[in-house]
Design a protein around this nucleic acid. Sequence first.
DNA 1: CCCGGAACCTGAAGGC
DNA 2: TGCCTTCAGGTTCCGG
Length: 269
Amino acid sequence: MPELPEVETIRKELLPHVLKRTIKSVDVLWDRMVKYPSVKDFTRQVTGQKITSLTRRGKYLFFSLSNGVVLVMHMKMTGSLVMNSKDTKFARAILNLDNGKSVYFHDPRKFGKMWLEKDTKTIISELGPEPLDKDFTPAALAAILSKKTAPVKPVLLDQSLIAGIGNMYADESLFTARIHPEKPANKLTKAEVARLHAAIQSVIQKALKNKGASVRNYIRPDGAPGNAHDEFNVAHGVGKDCPRCGTPIRRIVVRGRGTYFCPMCQPKN
DNA sequence: CCCGGAACCTGAAGGC
DNA sequence: TGCCTTCAGGTTCCGG
């Protein structure tokens, strides 16, 4: 699924195609993917505007437009942005640019959304720090975890606490830090918090380097897959063995999320 | 506040 | 081969 590394890869690779381009027209092929305003008002406010910047926070993409409006996109589970796509079976919206290129919003599941905001603050203020932010220190993570009695995994997934981590990278981070996903967040030792902090950063950095993980429908703007899933240790690894100790990877459900871990390397106690 | 569950959707995978 | 059921998981919303 598109998490921070996937959305950042989309942003980086889309940028040269869209920066300073004018949106000549918009085709909305699935009306309900526009959260607000109405499709008609959305189209009116976007058409003819120049894209002045493309930024990201957590899993949200922000196209800043020359009229001051911000076009926000969220890929949810199966969304992707592809330049000049030939396969239009799952195209839900198309931005046609003045350089003759088009941005296709593909989304088989139709969970993805786009909408307009007056600035990025309305979204960013609801989000916690990003894993690679300067202010995401071990002490900051410790403060976040100490307030929660919930299992550590859903805390990592809470975007208002930390922005950008999804199911795959939560599992990978907990494996790397050798922490059981159901351990109560406020029960982690200082050493575990330090390991988890380092693990989150290294997992996200590695995934960025590998241009995201193509486990489901995620593809990059040029249509190519990412490679981060090649280096997964446990995520979606049922039927495989732990690369560290050889124990079969187990799948449990934590707060409704499929969760993969090594019962030997990540003991409950 | 906290939690569980449903809703949004449809392709893929598994069972029979 | 084909029908049916279940599963996937980001986010929001609703009820207990």
